[in-house]
Design a protein around this nucleic acid. Structure first.
Lengths: 214, 214, 214, 214
DNA sequence: TATGAATGAGCATTCATTCAT
DNA sequence: CATGAATGAATGCTCATTCAT
């Protein structure tokens, strides 16, 4: 009896969250007002407060969602192939696609991954998802090492983090400067990213072993 | 006549900018009010508006300054050594030091480098400095290739950009998650960054040539 | 037919009023929201509006109730003894006890007694109860005069009102400053009130007659 | 130089406070909005915030002022006569006049006197003034006892407090029910108050000694 | 009757910006 | 040139009240 009525709540939350996501995408979360969100969602501001306690709660929900979506994308990538090389390509492809589809979500997820240690944004679930993503990538690295495709002297965790930093920086730059890149190098975003992804991969690929002395 | 009067103007602008920079560093630009800046600089708020049209103009100037400072740091790095490997190390060291000293400036510069194509932030000068930095790094890459230290099949511009993206992402992540890194891997920020820098370098170092087939 | 249906209505109103009273007691009427009341009463907010037109109506009802309760307490006091002195003591005891038990109700009743001439709070019934209380106390005074315990030159109504004002002020002060009183005079609330009650009584007791010339 | 400019600030504060006091008088402090105050004072809401940090600051200032004014009135009363009886009359007259002139201030002062132990409303100064008022009245009582006009068995502090409670209750009731009093007893406020003041005085006057046995 | 749902009208507070002097 | 003074426009958030079902 109670259940039947509670369904719509999630729909309303979803509608509001969707409107908010779109606005956040355009102007950032800070510059988006509750009024904007309410109006975009077709509700009054007071109604938004019926479904969300806070502006923060909206942001948190969006963050959590973006993290989960990212995790799904990565899971799919790892499941789609066996070789490390191929898996890496899929990871990059998924990340790129995800960024293209949900730029705000992507940015948010990255930021959260960078800062997750902060207060529990959505009951700590965001943090957990971040950990899961880390675990996913760590297993990818370990598997690649075992297969002999990746260098044996790399340490999974530092490598993983370094990769995260480098990959996210790369993708973000590719997005914000795609026009510039197109003009000065005649490459579209995808080509540039492929180039960058390759470069990063070479840093961990087995063939590079011992190649560089300090 | 005009010159003589313009000198003090620059001094006032400088004093205000310095005060603003310090505040931005601590609380971020958004959370710093014009009141804060005026007070910290020892001027009245209205006076700040005599020297800067906008809050934005202050931010832009600071951005330009941060870009210039960054350029100086990089120049010093390239001048400090001959081998590509050593130069790379110096670049990384300078970047790390710069980030440690002026985290806000660093972030700003990176963001600007990523987004500079936007409106003329300070008369287009910011853009120019960005171009200079790019040129600087391009020459570093080319020189390294000529010396045989770097792979001959890399293309300077895409590589350069990919490097920027990756490096900035790496440094930013190292900063925002230094605590987490320390706890989970027992590495301090410097060690983690060294590890990441090495990884990135291997992607362009000569020894890796042919090591990876697609 | 009408009667049978109206019974439950009173029960609902009672339940809501009870919940409201408890909340008002804790946080005051202004800080208590209709949501709070509805939730505490186990109804939906809209249902509360079925039984009460207004928040004000709830407050009014509670006021009426508090007046009635006060009247009962006073009746009991007057019935409990014959001498004026003893009756006075009982009145004071009842008032003090009532204030201790229902501070909000007490305050409300006093305020209403002071202001009742205002708009008809609950159909004028509150006013009537106030009148009854006045009559009760007037009869107490008259009886005391007849018995020779109270001064013969006092006029019942002005005395009665003056007593109300003085007594309520005394009790309210005793409550709000009980801590301060304890600290500075080493008296607890009850002792202080006894002292004050005695003081007031001396102003009307027979023995004081002629004692003061203007 | 700085001084000359700071004068107007006090004037603005004064104007705002005056407007606020008038509004508080009518609708109470809680129901008066900053908008109301600003509008009544002829300023914009933002300007009010230039001169007062908070709504609370306005309330606090008004409270302090009302306490000080009350203290002045009482000082004047004590200075105006030598006999306790006459002094008492002057105190009552001053209080009545003060209440008639500044009903809100009066109410506020009484409330503060009742609750002063709370947080420092205006730098603790409000509390101090309250203490001074208490000291003033205590000296009045002691002096009256020494002169043989007041009972020797009264204890200054409890008596003082009891008097405060009773007097304030009396005056407040006289004000809020003046119409009712007029109608039912044919007395105006002043007459009623005189009557009540006399009644209270008899409770402490020397002649009443021993008149009442328990 | 009972209520889930929705909201209009506010509210205290902030801040970048303007302008007369 | 420098500034004291003033403010319009928001902003996140609250709550009594209404209404269709």
């Amino acid at each position: 009896m109670a259940r039947r009525k509670k369904q719509p709540v999630q729909e309303h939350r979803g509608a509001i969250a969707a409107a908010a996501a779109a606005l956040f995408e355009q102007n950032g979360a800070a510059s988006t007002t509750m009024d904007d969100i309410a109006h975009a969602a077709g509700y009054s501001k007071a109604t938004v407060y019926v479904y969300f306690k806070n502006k923060d709660e909206i942001v948190s929900l969006l963050t959590l969602e973006s993290m989960r979506r990212l995790r799904e994308h990565l899971c799919r990538a790892l499941d789609g192939a066996q070789t490390a090389r191929r898996r890496y390509e899929l990871i990059c492809r998924e990340l790129t696609a995800y960024q293209a589809k949900y730029p705000f979500y992507f940015k948010t997820a990255l930021e959260k991954i960078r800062l997750e240690s902060g207060a529990a944004t959505d009951g700590g679930r965001t943090f957990s998802v971040g950990e899961e993503i880390n675990a996913l990538l760590a297993s990818f690295l370990r598997n690649g090492m075992e297969r002999g495709e990746l260098r044996r002297d790399i340490e999974p965790f530092p490598t993983l983090f370094a990769f995260w930093g480098a990959l996210s920086g790369l993708i973000l730059l590719a997005e914000s400067k795609s026009e510039y890149i197109q003009e000065t190098m005649g490459m579209d975003r995808g080509q540039f990213l492929s180039y960058g992804f390759d470069m990063l991969y070479r840093g961990v690929a087995a063939g590079s072993e011992g190649g560089v002395e300090k």
